[in-house]
Nucleic acid binder design. Structure first.
Lengths: 193, 193
DNA sequence: ATCAAGGATGTTATAATATAACATCACACT
DNA sequence: AGTGTGATGTTATATTATAACATCCTTGAT
């Protein structure tokens, strides 16, 4: 079993992922960075960050608001959006553009460009550094004479964990293919007409 | 002059870009693809496509609606969104996730993954095939055991044309740097603490 | 000790983006 | 004529995000 899970690239596999540790590392880093930068990680901002780190799924602002309200009943959208703005500015979370949602950044202490692997099935987001991709991207930019100020590489797909649990289901139901319910990203090509 | 403009990677440079030709090519391709695929490029869908191709800027749905209303006063959001859905499905336009906006696809006849260079200044979007980027990306996916169904690579920055026109302005105003008004995508790195 | 300045938050309202749900229409096939 | 399908019309509403202005709190200058 250990060998199996050790082989899994998916870092959130429940068998090897200690989420409490993961969260406390993220919060510690956040505290540290804010102190160093002389910015305030206020109770509201910290609470929102904690809510985001509740899972590795991308969360919607209004879902955060609903959960935030359990503690601060009078909270309004602006409360959440302001906290989100701050956290994004400080690189502590990412905005997932293709979902209008937010996810904790798991390497906020480093300068980095981001590759987000977004699972359509479980909605977890796996953030990867992907330096090779970024190097090639930079080449493209300079070829185009383009000065890039932000890069958001977001890929929608199915994570390994969900592929596997789907495989299990399929072995029971007789289904063989996950992709039947999904449209591949490009289904037409007339270039060889 | 010809040599100068010929050296410009920016394909929308007004000096070399015949937009009428560009649009009619796009519309012809769209018509052709729809016939081949047996789907209907209805008057509404065609009109919306034309409105989008009015420029190479990304357009908002409600801006399209406003312009559409000049011809069909009673039009409602659903009219536009339905047309947009169709055009996206057919690969005739792209949704720019980071802007909640839409832009014509300039190579809809080919299967392709997209690299969108989005100019913060003029809002034009330069779509590039970028096969190298995509190859490296695919490597990343397989390393992660991730099955990707869509890729949207969107980079925000300043296109060459705007850099140049800004340079001209700066030579008059004495400014030297475009980036002063812009936040680079990563301004902090504590990794060498 | 006041007072001004700046940052954070509270509060109300509204803007901007997008979809649901159901009715109707038009055309194609039988 | 009847039926099915895809497109559109129409109303309403959901979802996401920001504007604008008031208040409060800390800090530092006078």
């Amino acid at each position: 079993m250990t060998t199996l899970t050790a082989a899994l690239p998916n870092i959130f596999s429940t068998l090897e992922h200690d989420h409490k540790k993961c969260v406390s590392k993220a919060l510690d880093t956040a505290q540290h960075l804010c102190v160093v930068r002389g910015v305030q990680l206020t109770p509201i901002r910290l609470q929102v960050l904690e809510l985001i780190w509740d899972s590795h799924k991308a969360v919607k602002a209004y879902d955060l608001l609903d959960r935030f309200k359990l503690q601060q009943q009078a909270a309004k959208p602006a409360t959440i959006y302001r906290a989100l703005d701050f956290l994004i500015e400080q690189g502590l979370i990412h905005r997932v553009e293709s979902l209008n949602a937010f996810v904790g950044c798991n390497c906020s202490e480093h300068q980095h460009e981001l590759l987000l692997l977004i699972c359509k099935h479980c909605h977890e987001v796996d953030e990867r550094p992907a330096p090779k991709v970024m190097a090639v991207l930079s080449e493209e930019f300079s070829q185009a004479g383009f000065i890039a100020y932000s890069k958001a590489i977001e890929a929608q797909g199915i994570c390994l964990k969900c592929q596997q649990s789907q495989d299990e289901q399929n072995s029971l139901t007789g289904r063989t293919d996950l992709s039947v319910n999904l449209k591949p990203y490009s289904v037409f090509d007339l270039s060889q007409d």
